[in-house]
């Protein structure tokens, strides 16, 4: 018995499957993916390519209908709506992505601890998770953000704090299913520690589910983040965050409806794009979700 046993599992990049799936996208789904990427790029460069200054108020130009120089008209203070929508993409889109990353990290951590921590830890964590699920995240983040003092950061923190239970619930289910797969048993027999098992084997196996969830989550988060700003606990005027833009032009609907219409349309386009992206990733990465196959024992 001179043959040594391999000490670690063969390395397969954990990003390979999702990335291959992304590259294989064709047709309508590819259009959706390209639009999504463009939106993210826009969020990064948006503030640098605005045709007008976004804070430059000019009462003489107030509430002008869309024309050649102001493509989406001007708002009640004479600011160019198109420029503000472009610049606002940063807060709305990057803000939502930040929120999703934040609560995904907490959610994965909670799910992982619940999975390997034994029945008592699991029960306690899941009760806390259920408490978080019991209140609509909209209401809880409204209260939390108001309590911390209204600002875009407060709203984002509030959404991270209230958003993780959904991820934790879903991932705990997935992880428990992974835990009974033969390769996990094999790893346990080989004496892999629980921490290493989690980090190297179980979490990577949940990534595809997580990525599908991310796309949908970004779409939802943009809606809620906009709603919080609209209610006055998120980004504050004169910020060009889309929800805050709608809130400040709300009172001027009858004279300049376009100032509220454009940012709302931007939210809709972004939310629909990421929603569609989530759908197509879902079909590609987990056909089992939509159909007859179960995950247990499958090639995952």
């Amino acid at each position: 018995m001179t043959q040594t046993l391999p000490t670690s599992a063969p390395t397969v990049s954990r990003w390979r499957r999702p990335l291959t799936a992304l590259a294989q996208i064709r047709g309508m789904d590819r259009v959706v993916a390209i639009v999504a990427v463009c939106l993210v790029i826009l969020a990064v460069i948006g503030p640098y390519i605005t045709p007008h200054d976004i804070l430059d108020a000019n009462i003489a130009q107030a509430s002008k209908a869309p024309d050649a120089s102001h493509w989406m008209g001007t708002d009640e203070q004479g600011r160019d709506v198109f420029s503000r929508v472009l610049a606002g993409a940063r807060y709305s889109i990057l803000g939502s992505i930040g929120v999703v990353i934040g609560f995904s990290l907490i959610g994965v951590l909670v799910a992982a601890i619940a999975t390997v921590g034994g029945p008592v830890v699991d029960e306690v964590l899941m009760r806390i998770t259920d408490a978080g699920l019991a209140v609509p995240s909209m209401v809880l983040s409204l209260a939390l953000s108001a309590a911390m003092g209204p600002s875009l950061n407060s709203a984002m923190i509030a959404m991270i704090v209230t958003g993780w239970p959904y991820t934790a619930r879903l991932l705990r289910t997935i992880m428990r299913e992974t835990m009974v797969l033969p390769f996990v048993e094999g790893a346990l027999i080989m004496g892999v520690t629980r921490r290493r098992l989690m980090i190297k084997h179980v979490i990577p196996n949940s990534l595809d589910v997580l990525i599908v969830k991310w796309a949908g989550d970004i779409g939802n988060t943009i809606l809620v983040l906009g709603a919080l700003s609209f209610l006055g606990v998120g980004a504050q005027p004169p910020s060009a965050e889309w929800g805050a833009m709608i809130a400040s032009s709300q009172a001027y609907m009858s004279t300049a409806w376009w100032a509220a219409f454009a940012p709302g349309m931007a939210i809709t386009i972004t939310a629909v794009t990421f929603g569609l992206l989530g759908e197509s990733l879902q079909v590609r990465l987990n056909p089992e979700v939509s159909g007859q196959f179960t995950r247990v024992g499958g090639k995952s």
């Binding site: 809606l223 709603a227 929800g243 709300q250 609907m253 629909v272």
Partner: peptide, 10 residues
């Protein structure tokens, strides 16, 4: 994907 508050305003 339509924000409820925006739809309500419109």
């Amino acid at each position: 994907g339509i924000p409820t508050f925006w739809l309500a305003l419109l």
